[in-house]
Simulated scan of single mutants.
Amino acid sequence: MSDEESGANGGAAGGPENDGQRFDRLPATAEDRVVAGRPTREEVVEWWEERYGLSPETWDGHTFWEKGKGKIWAFAGDLVSPNPVEAVGMRVIRARQEHWKPSTDAVQRFCGEATRNVVVLEPEEAERFVRGEDQELERWDGDWGYLVAAHEFEGAREPIGVGLYLHGELRSTVPKGRQEDLS
């Protein structure tokens, strides 16, 4: 039995708490949750479906893991839980906050089929976005919050990153180390 299952770590209310130094598999449902605040697989899959229109089948064959507080990773396979490895799979969401934020890698890998909250940028807008620049974008009439920023490339819509849309402005969240000057 793991520390999480036995409660050996002792949370504030005497229950198990999150150990930020290891990967723990997300519970399947809320009924299976033993660590307060930990998202469930069901919640993660539903969030991707509700926010971006991704089919739940997108995640078939993937297990979800938390390391740290709210850093959710997807792994196309299975491991024992808990697991002390440094990394497994791909970080897909930052959760345990009011608004969950998808990772750039997850958007680029999984959101080609997204049907909601995708803003398609014109070439000049896409160039500014990947340079890490914020820009006015009054034409967007969808939800505020984290959007999939995409661009038409050779006749296909390709996700390029995560943007935060607030008050008519699209803020680029492209990590500094991945920003590019395409001009």
Rank of each mutant, 00 (worst) to 15 (best):
T29D: 02
R128I: 04
V45Y: 07
R116M: 07
R157C: 12
R109T: 15
L121M: 07
N18I: 14
E31Y: 14
E127W: 07
R91A: 00
Q179V: 03
G53I: 02
E124L: 10
E138R: 11
D32A: 12
Q97V: 11
A114F: 13
Q21H: 14
S55R: 09
E17Q: 14
P159D: 01
G168S: 13
W48G: 01
Q108N: 06
D3C: 08
G11S: 14
R41T: 15
A114Y: 12
P39L: 06
S172C: 03
R109H: 14
P27M: 04
A36M: 12
R116C: 05
S172N: 07
D181I: 10
V92N: 06
L137K: 04
L79P: 09
E180M: 15
E152W: 00
C111N: 04
S172K: 07
P27Y: 05
F75K: 11
D60C: 13
Q179Y: 07
G163V: 00
G70A: 05
D19P: 07
P56I: 01
G61E: 10
C111M: 07
A36S: 09
G7Y: 09
E42S: 11
W47A: 06
P82K: 14
F129A: 00
W144M: 11
V118G: 02
P56Q: 01
S183F: 10
G14T: 06
V34E: 06
G163N: 09
Y52D: 01
K176T: 11
R116D: 08
A114S: 06
E43Y: 04
E86H: 12
P175C: 03
E57M: 09
V120E: 09
D143I: 03
D24I: 13
R41Y: 10
G145M: 03
L54G: 01
K101D: 01
R94F: 10
E138K: 10
A95V: 13
Q179G: 02
A36K: 07
M90E: 15
E152I: 09
W140Q: 02
Q135W: 00
V118E: 01
Q97W: 00
G20P: 08
F23N: 03
V148Q: 03
Q108R: 15
V118A: 01
H151D: 02
V130A: 00
H99D: 13
E57C: 08
W140M: 02
A76K: 15
I160K: 02
G11I: 06
H99A: 15
V44N: 05
G20A: 14
V88E: 12
M1F: 14
D181Q: 12
A150C: 03
Q108P: 00
D143C: 05
P56F: 01
D105W: 01
I160W: 10
T40Y: 08
V148E: 01
V85E: 09
L170H: 03
G14P: 09
R157E: 12
H62M: 10
P123N: 07
Y146F: 15
G142C: 05
E127T: 05
H151T: 10
D143R: 12
R157L: 11
L166W: 11
G20V: 14
A126N: 07
H62N: 12
R94P: 06
E57F: 06
T104A: 08
E66F: 02
T115C: 06
Q97P: 00
E127S: 07
M90S: 12
E152T: 10
W47R: 04
